[in-house]
């Protein structure tokens, strides 16, 4: 029983980070109908920028902020310069644009920071542990989960309670109608992309101490975040959070009781199962064309 609880605790911790990645993907998908394959690389970019700031002697918080701002600007810039002009075109064109940007970012990071893996410091320790009953959880794991949950809460406040969040929801539903009310739809979309980049960078910064930082660090977490987004319904922010946590727990239980080797396959199975059984996901509505 404690073993199961331990698996669940571990699963929640990685699930919180999957949720952060999934939120970035969903945020863009529901406002721009773009599947951003460069999202993982933007997360990594944020972590690298934070690392450079740390190495330049900046304090931890300022370094993380720099990473977030850098990734946010890169994401918004990508939208303004490449995605928006291509948007008029086909879905395939968009997919290729984001894939191309992903490759570009990967190459850029390899060129600037090299391809060897780097340790990434964290103010939290992974050897100091908390015990709850029989469950052991490291400070780093607990802190990451807490940070992820705080970020999710902040995002939902922003989206549900602020004028910018309202404009973001309106633009996602009907950009033309939003413009007709004087809402600068393009700037709101750029802000949405910036926000997705910042969420991604925070996932990158939280993952880097565990995974060690290299330009391809996010390959696997991106896939997990994507699976979590599909599970949650692509369109729903709460869905992305529930999808991320569910996937994290399922994966951890699967690794514990079935097979560690096939753990990574589980997210792929989840995508296939969702597409077959409930294509609209847990929280999505059945597909309707947007007006």
């Amino acid at each position: 029983m404690t073993l199961a609880a331990q698996y669940v605790a571990n699963g929640l911790a990685s699930g919180g980070l999957y949720a952060l990645v999934a939120l970035g993907i969903v945020l863009l998908y529901r406002s721009s109908r773009v599947l951003n394959f460069a999202h993982g690389d933007l997360c990594t970019l944020g972590a690298f920028l934070a690392l450079s700031a740390l190495q330049a002697g900046w304090p931890y918080a300022a370094s993380v902020a720099a990473g977030l701002v850098g990734a946010g600007l890169a994401s918004a810039g990508f939208y303004q310069v490449l995605v928006r002009p291509v948007r008029e075109g086909t879905v395939l064109g968009l997919v290729i644009t984001t894939l191309g940007f992903a490759l570009f970012l990967g190459g850029f990071m390899a060129w600037v920071w090299g391809t060897d893996t780097k340790p990434f410091p964290s103010p939290m320790s992974d050897v100091r542990v908390y015990r709850l009953g029989g469950v052991v959880i490291s400070e780093l794991t607990a802190g990451s989960l807490a940070a992820a949950l705080v970020l999710v809460a902040l995002l939902s406040l922003l989206v549900q309670r602020t004028p910018l969040g309202l404009a973001m929801r309106a633009v996602a539903q009907n950009p033309v109608a939003a413009q007709l009310l004087g809402v600068p739809a393009r700037r709101v979309l750029a802000a949405t992309w910036a926000l997705a980049g910042m969420l991604g960078a925070s996932a990158g910064v939280l993952l880097a101490p565990v995974l060690l930082l290299d330009p391809f660090m996010m390959l696997d977490p991106f896939l997990k975040g994507f699976a979590a987004a599909v599970l949650g319904g692509m369109d729903s922010l709460p869905g992305a959070v529930v999808g991320g946590l569910t996937l994290g727990v399922a994966e951890s239980l699967f690794a514990g009781y079935v097979s560690v080797k096939f753990k990574a396959t589980l997210s792929f199975l989840v995508i296939v199962a969702v597409l077959l059984l409930k294509p609209e996901g847990l929280f999505g509505r059945p597909f309707e064309r947007r007006v």
């Binding site: 004028p163 309202l166 929801r169 539903q173 009907n174 033309v176 109608a177 009310l181």
Partner: peptide
């Protein structure tokens, strides 16, 4: 061009 998934108040607020 109303926003079906926003409330009436939010539609006006926009």
């Amino acid at each position: 061009g109303i926003f079906p998934e926003l409330t009436v108040a939010e539609n006006l607020q926009l």
